[in-house]
Structure formats: structure tokens, C-alpha cells
Amino acid sequence: MRRTSFANWPCSIARTMDLLGDWWTPLVLREAFYGIKRFDAFQQELGIARNTLTDRLRRLVDEGLMEKRAYQTDPVRYDYVLTEMGRDFFGVLAAMNSWGNRWLSGEQGAPVVFHHDRCGHEAEAAVVCADCGEPMTAEDTRPRLGPGYPPHLAERPDVQRRFTA
């Protein structure tokens, strides 16, 4: 059965989920942030099937989050390195880690914490307004139509209801 593509939906969350596709892709990106670069190391750390890993790495390269760099010529072998686009995904993983630490850790505590080298402290990701620096919460933040929302959809009554208070 073919899955629905969200790549052209007027929603960045849906588009991101379409790019990720499944639970393996964020875990491959996590390993890349942990310093993994080689196919065999990804496979060993994740316990992922080789064909699945090949597919996920190919997609991450095709979508621009990683690039392949040859480190050996005979036979050709590659490192998989995060691009600027891929490195920018760190905030998403950090937010997921913070949420998981709060709600899924259990009595033992957080399994992974992040150390912020600049200030020297253990840190949790926080979503703050880029303009005023205040925390953004579901209670004080609402979605609005952006400039990229398709005009023919923006006129629909159901869309109007969704994006107006």
C-alpha cells in the first residue's frame, strides 16, 4: 500500500514528517550528531537492517541533510557527513530529547542530557520567541497563515476558521 505524501502540503510540520518518513531517519541523524560517519558504524549502533540503512542514508543525501565523502577508493567507501541543513536539525532532536526526558524518563532520570559548552552547564532545549526571547507555549502561541500558504486554500472557510481566533 502506498503512503500519502505530505511533501506539498502547506504545513512545515507535515513536510518535515514526509522527509523523515519513519522512526529510523531521526535516529540516523541522532547518530550523526553523536559523531558517527561510516555506514558500518551506523548499522552497528542502531542494529538497523543494511537495506533499511542504505535507503535512509540515500534519502538524507538526496534531500540535502547529509553528503557522501569518499574516504577510500578501492573499493570506494564513504563517510556520511551532516550538511548545514542537517546540522540545523539539531534543534528538533534537542526538543524531542527535552520532551522525552520530562515525560518518558521514569525514576532513573534522563538517559541523555546535553552539555552546553559555551556556558559549561547541562541544558535542556527550550522553544523561545526569536524576537522577545520569552518561552513559547501552546497557551500563548497560535498558528497564522504565512506568506507561502496557497492563496486558493487560504480562502476556504475551514482554513479561515482554523487560522483566525
Rank of each mutant, 00 (worst) to 15 (best):
M1G: 12
M1D: 07
R2Y: 07
R2Q: 09
R3F: 08
S5M: 10
F6R: 13
A7G: 04
A7H: 10
N8H: 11
P10L: 12
S12G: 05
A14P: 00
R15Y: 02
R15I: 06
T16L: 12
T16E: 11
M17F: 08
D18T: 06
D18P: 00
L19H: 05
D22L: 07
D22S: 15
W24D: 03
W24A: 04
P26M: 05
P26Q: 05
P26R: 09
L29Y: 00
R30M: 04
A32T: 05
A32L: 04
A32R: 00
F33L: 03
F33S: 01
G35R: 05
I36S: 02
K37C: 11
R38H: 05
A41K: 06
F42A: 01
F42R: 01
Q43W: 05
Q43K: 15
Q43A: 14
G47K: 10
I48P: 00
R50E: 08
R50F: 03
N51S: 14
N51E: 09
L53T: 02
R56L: 02
R56T: 00
L57W: 00
R58T: 15
R58H: 13
R58Q: 14
L60A: 02
L60M: 13
E63Q: 14
E63W: 06
G64T: 07
M66P: 00
E67T: 14
R69L: 12
Q72G: 08
T73Q: 14
T73H: 14
D74P: 03
D74R: 13
D74M: 08
D74H: 12
P75F: 07
V76P: 10
R77A: 11
Y78A: 02
D79K: 11
D79F: 06
L82T: 05
T83R: 10
G86A: 05
R87Y: 07
D88I: 04
F89G: 00
F90K: 09
V92K: 01
V92P: 00
L93K: 01
A94M: 04
A94F: 04
A94S: 11
A95I: 14
A95K: 14
M96P: 01
M96F: 10
S98T: 15
W99S: 06
R102A: 12
R102P: 01
L104T: 09
S105C: 07
G109M: 12
G109C: 11
A110I: 04
A110F: 09
V113P: 01
D117Y: 09
D117M: 12
C119W: 03
G120M: 07
A123M: 05
E124L: 11
A126Q: 14
V128R: 15
V128P: 00
C129L: 04
A130Y: 10
C132K: 10
C132L: 09
C132S: 08
P135N: 07
A138P: 05
E139W: 06
E139G: 07
R142A: 10
P143K: 14
P143M: 14
R144I: 14
L145Q: 01
L145T: 01
G146W: 04
G148Q: 14
G148R: 15
P150W: 10
H152N: 08
E155S: 15
E155H: 13
P157T: 10
D158Q: 13
Q160V: 13
F163I: 02
A165E: 14
